[in-house]
């Protein structure tokens, strides 16, 4: 009797392990499948409601974190801290949303988003819990015109790209994800390279494969390169702000052909984003 029970347990365990490997093999690299689309469609409205209901609690916890962070800074930042505290403690979500939307409109008006792209605004409703997968789920999907490979921005700059879509939601892989690579250039020098993540640190990106003969300086801005040629073009439009160069030692540039970049967008704290639909999806 006991042996039979042990055998059954082992069989279930083996089945689960084999099942995991089979699922991983079948679904890896194939985007979203019917099952995921179905589950996501069922849970999207629930997630949206849960997201809205838990926002005040999230703001409160994040306020503590921000306050702790800000305590160590000098008096020059006191005013900013007060403003942030007012936003968080007052739970004035509408004010924060308004500011984010204004920044997005400014980005549109400022000419950063070229013609031919139709921005679709979405809200982050879920986020990956592990440091290895930097992706978020937004509440805009194929029903809103969102498609795979559409670039995603917020008011500060480039955030990531759409990697899977369902009817009412989409998965956005952030530029801090280990699978991300964005062709970029340093302005005004025009030095080109590829923005790669430094996995585990969303506040630090690496501009790799740069021309080591041209020296990049700290503080210079990095934007998307948006190349085009031989019938194909980059999925990212040119000149979308990405970040600014933080460390650019000559030794690192010459030896490793890379510099470190801080993204303009706060990738840990995303709320409203815009998907640029209608562009190249090569």
């Amino acid at each position: 009797m006991y042996r039979k029970q042990v055998r059954r347990r082992r069989a279930v365990l083996a089945l689960l392990i084999i099942g995991s490997f089979v699922l991983l093999t079948i679904t890896y690299g194939s985007g979203s499948n019917g099952l995921q689309r179905g589950v996501s469609t069922i849970f999207s409205p629930v997630q949206s409601v849960a997201d809205g209901a838990l926002k005040p609690a999230r703001d409160l916890v994040n306020w503590f974190d921000q306050t702790f962070d800000a305590r160590g800074r000098n008096s020059r930042l006191q005013d900013e801290l007060r403003a942030a505290r007012q936003e968080a403690v007052g739970a004035d979500a509408a004010l924060a949303e308004n500011a984010q939307l204004r920044k997005l409109v400014q980005l549109n008006r400022g000419g950063a988003i070229p013609s031919g792209y139709e921005p679709v605004t979405g809200r982050v409703i879920a986020r990956s819990p592990t440091v290895w997968f930097s992706d978020v789920t937004i509440d805009a999907g194929s029903g809103d015109g969102v498609e795979v490979n559409d670039p995603v921005v917020n008011g500060d700059g480039l955030v990531g790209t759409v990697t899977a879509v369902t009817g009412g939601s989409a998965q956005v892989t952030l530029i801090a994800d280990s699978s991300s690579a964005v062709s970029a250039k340093v302005v005004p020098l025009g030095v080109q390279g590829v923005i790669r993540p430094n996995v585990g640190d969303p506040g630090d990106l690496i501009l790799d494969f740069i021309d080591s003969t041209k020296h990049i300086n700290k503080g210079q801005a990095v934007v998307t390169a948006g190349w085009r040629g031989q019938g194909i073009e980059s999925r990212f439009p040119p000149n979308l702000p990405i970040g600014e160069v933080t460390t650019a030692s000559i030794r690192e540039q010459e030896a490793q052909q890379q510099v470190h970049v801080r993204p303009f967008a706060d990738l840990r704290d995303l709320d409203l984003v815009q998907v640029l639909t209608g562009g190249s999806r090569e």
Partner: peptide, 30 residues
Amino acid sequence: MTGAVTGFSVGFLLDCLLIEPLGGASLVLL
């Protein structure tokens, strides 16, 4: 058995909702 089956289920639902490759989180959590 409870640990393994719930671990697999939690991982499966997580991967479905995050539209990640299925099986990775299930394997670890089981």
